Computed example of a mutant assay.
Amino acid sequence: MSSLITVIQLALQLYTYLIIASAILSWLVAFNVVNTRNDVVRSIWSFLDAVTEPALRPIRKILPNLGGVDISPVLLIFLIIFIQNILDRLKYQVPGWAL
């Protein structure tokens, strides 16, 4: 069971890195640092969008409009950290914490 939890935690950590990369790339595109007409940038953009958008879309539906500021990646990362903490408790079976 411990190895399965470790694999899930590694996948969550990788997903966190993809969320951060997506946010940074969106800033770079918004400030015209990178050009989306470049094939490499466009392929990276579409990959990151395809991977992160299904998890970010429900959060964006719940959040109110904050005037162009998107905090949904931050909230998703907090949720991932919360899930990782729960998995740590399951992995090490902290005494006094029951499911």
Results as ranks from 00 to 15, higher is better:
residue 92 Y to P: 07
residue 22 S to I: 00
residue 40 V to A: 13
residue 81 I to V: 10
residue 14 L to K: 07
residue 85 N to K: 13
residue 75 L to H: 00
residue 75 L to R: 03
residue 46 S to D: 14
residue 61 K to I: 10
residue 22 S to D: 12
residue 70 D to F: 03
residue 33 V to P: 04
residue 49 D to T: 13
residue 80 I to H: 03
residue 87 L to V: 05
residue 55 A to W: 06
residue 43 S to W: 09
residue 49 D to A: 06
residue 35 N to I: 03
residue 29 V to C: 10
residue 67 G to H: 05
residue 59 I to D: 04
residue 92 Y to V: 13
residue 23 A to N: 06
residue 43 S to F: 06
residue 82 F to A: 15
residue 81 I to S: 05
residue 82 F to M: 12
residue 16 T to I: 05
residue 27 W to Y: 12
residue 39 D to P: 08
residue 57 R to P: 00
residue 91 K to H: 15
residue 9 Q to N: 13
residue 99 L to W: 15
residue 13 Q to K: 15
residue 72 S to T: 02
residue 35 N to Y: 03
residue 51 V to D: 01
residue 64 P to F: 07
residue 47 F to C: 06
residue 72 S to N: 04
residue 65 N to R: 13
residue 19 I to G: 05
residue 72 S to I: 02
residue 9 Q to C: 06
residue 78 F to G: 01
residue 26 S to E: 07
residue 14 L to G: 11
residue 53 E to N: 13
residue 76 L to S: 04
residue 80 I to T: 02
residue 89 R to E: 10
residue 44 I to P: 00
residue 7 V to Q: 09
residue 99 L to F: 15
residue 59 I to C: 03
residue 23 A to M: 11
residue 67 G to S: 06
residue 43 S to D: 15
residue 79 L to A: 06
residue 10 L to I: 14
residue 31 F to P: 04
residue 73 P to G: 04
residue 80 I to S: 01
residue 39 D to C: 00
residue 34 V to L: 05
residue 90 L to S: 08
residue 61 K to V: 08
residue 1 M to P: 07
residue 16 T to P: 00
residue 84 Q to E: 08
residue 49 D to S: 06
residue 22 S to M: 07
residue 25 L to C: 10
residue 61 K to C: 01
residue 31 F to K: 05
residue 23 A to S: 13
residue 14 L to A: 15
residue 87 L to S: 04
residue 12 L to W: 03
residue 8 I to H: 01
residue 89 R to I: 14
